[in-house]
Amino acid sequence: MNSWNSVWKIGGIVLLAYVIVRGFSTPLQPGLVEASPTRLSPGKATVSLSAVGQPFLRDQETLEDFQLVLRSEEGLLKTQVLDISEHRVTASVNIPTVLPSPALDAFLFTPSSGTLFLGNAFFVENAAEGIIPAGFVAPAPDEAAPLLGFSFPYQPNIMESIRNLLWHVPMWFAMFFVMGIGFVASLAQLRTGQVNWDHRAEAAVRTGLVFGVLGLVTGSLWARWTWGAWWVSDPQLNGALVTVLLYSGYMILRAAMDDDERVGRLSAVYNVFAFIMLVVLLMVLPRYTESLHPGKDGNPGFNSYDLDNSLRAVFYPAVIGWGALCYWIYSLRLRMNRIEHHLLTQ
């Protein structure tokens, strides 16, 4: 084994160890989860909002550093912050008798954790529709950038389970990576008819299937936590299941034949057809099925992933680490296939 081979294999494992440690020890940014009381009437009221994740109150911060603003459509309503604790803010608010909309969103501006937001936090009963009177309006505050240290972004519903991003998503990437290798190998097998390419295709699909099943399991667990069901009809989930079914069909097709030349030829043909149909399916599905999955219309849930440097610093190593592990398993399987072939043809 030459040195570069040792480096990437050990490197992959070390990266994954880093991902595990970082992924499980990084705290979550604070996020507002609950308002009380949720129903208000015009007049003076005391409201409080609670948060999860890291505390948003740090050392040497005072009440004046925090600002709570309620939004009714375009109008901003000012409040007076009365008390701050690690996970709770209490404020007094004077609600006018006219409001653009009875639903109020809450914005909490913090000195070190940026702006926390809770949509439809309060509902005002018995308020007439109209513009907020001048005396009640809050000046538009400057949006502060979060100054938090290394921490993962808070997402409603997802919360701490955001760490699954480091397992679930890279497993899919790894699967598509080896399935791509399998597709290219099958094309080469059809062109040249060499059994060597068939060994590659078989090893790739077998490895890819393992990672596909792992991706399904991690995805299903995540769906149970965030959406409340083990399985939902969703383009990504359906696409994932079909991928696993297609390649299981490939393995069954191989097992049904025993003539080496025929196995190589027919399974390569099927693999090429299946891969192309899979690409078509992954294009068709999202257009015609409703989605809860991130990255689709009406679900901006994960947009801040792209922006969050903390998550990025763990996510990219995770992709590389899982990819390396997957490629390692693939190469072992390939060498096994070659030795087996060598022994059987002597």
Binding site: P27, V33, E34, S50, A51, Q54
Partner: peptide
């Protein structure tokens, strides 16, 4: 929500870290 909120806010850095299970 209420249960999660309780678990997360009662512990120092939330349930995940506060309980030491992480």
């Amino acid at each position: 929500m209420a249960v999660i909120f309780h678990l997360l806010s009662s512990a120092m850095e939330g349930f995940f870290f506060g309980s030491g299970k992480a």
